[in-house]
Design a protein around this nucleic acid. Structure first.
Lengths: 198, 198
DNA sequence: GGAGTTCTTGACCGTGCGGTCCACCATAAG
DNA sequence: CTTATGGTGGACCGCACGGTCAAGAACTCC
């Protein structure tokens, strides 16, 4: 019926997301977005609306992906306790290359005061993360690796806070060795040793 | 000899710092800075240089004040262990009004990738904070409230990471009760109970 | 009071921004 | 092939931004 799109929406969102991730929202210009997406302004605006809407789309796609990755990371290890340990050490590996932190966290810092929608999305995101981690904690309890007396959600929040703090310290340029040591120190104190070594 | 200044440099820096704190660097315009400082562009530029330099001045004044406050908060309680506990619960009180987080953290998130000077300053700041907290940990060990086997600096880093994480979760709009519970949970696991109740 | 010096005010400038719009193009249906 | 439809690219717009500058005001010293 009409001319089909020549771009893949997902690919564009990924490229745009990386750009926002590297430079932040305000410091990313439409020209930057055109460059990384390979699209003209018209196409960009027709497909996504204005800059802010495009940003929100990229942000949502980021948090969706992050939650998928989190689900996978938490369910893969045979023992849930190991998954939780890995959660704390994950920020150090920095799979995305340079130390750009967490896009959701960066965005909350930059726009949290000004954009209620970003704030609300951050809140929802962290609630979801808490729930996912809480499930894993419950699993670890069920496996006998964590005392079943503790509230899974409460421990999940403590772990999430610790992890966010680590991501943050990583951004300031702390060397990997110190970061690793801190992560292990936190893990040792928040996650007791296995009660039984199988 | 010449016309004296009609403004107090410290007051201007405070006003400007609050503006940057509320809106972030990029989202603060020169007009905003003129409004909150009550100065014209010329005066602002003559006194501080361009926007970025003014920002860096405000940021430095913020971290200096923060460290003074930290020093005071850590030395005031008669028992060092109580001071460390308070450190974790401090983010919840939010003395500065709305939940705008930590200016240094916000700035690192917004400009860390783009401005090496901001990053370097963040690094220095966190090293200083770590040292201050480390001293307090050592004091708590000396007072017999913490096992002297642990490395003070390592524990200080863990505490700092936990605290940053809490500040962060507070920004996302987590309710005070949950936040308090998380802080106490973290404190309980990172800081063991007093060995002797005096 | 005059001279010299610094501070202040606000008009002014060039630039790059986000956003709009339209002429052109590729495709599918008839 | 024609026509209708939606996609594309870039010219274009108004604006607000960061930054400059010059003229006047306020002060001290002689």
């Amino acid at each position: 019926m009409a001319r089909p799109r020549t771009f893949d929406e997902k690919q564009v969102l990924t490229a745009v997301r990386d750009q926002f991730w590297d430079a932040g929202y305000a410091a990313t210009s439409l020209e930057d977005l055109m460059r990384v997406s390979g699209l003209g302004k018209g196409s960009l605006y027709a497909a996504f609306g204005d800059k802010r809407q495009l940003f929100l789309r990229a942000l949502r796609s980021y948090t969706d992906d992050s939650h998928d990755a989190l689900r996978k990371a938490l369910s893969e290890p045979p023992r849930a306790l190991d998954a939780l340990r890995l959660l704390l050490e994950a920020p150090i590996d920095d799979p995305t290359g340079t130390r750009r932190g967490c896009l959701m966290a960066n965005s909350t810092c930059e726009l949290g005061n000004a954009d209620p929608e970003v704030l609300a999305h951050a809140h929802r995101t962290y609630e979801t993360s808490t729930a996912l981690i809480g499930d894993c904690v419950a699993r670890a309890q069920h496996e006998g690796d964590l005392p079943s007396s503790a509230d899974p959600i409460a421990l999940a929040r403590a772990l999430l806070a610790a992890q966010q703090g680590l991501v943050f310290m990583s951004r300031t340029g702390l060397d990997t060795a110190t970061l690793t040591a801190t992560a292990q120190s936190l893990a040792a104190q928040l996650l007791p040793d296995r009660t039984d070594a199988r």
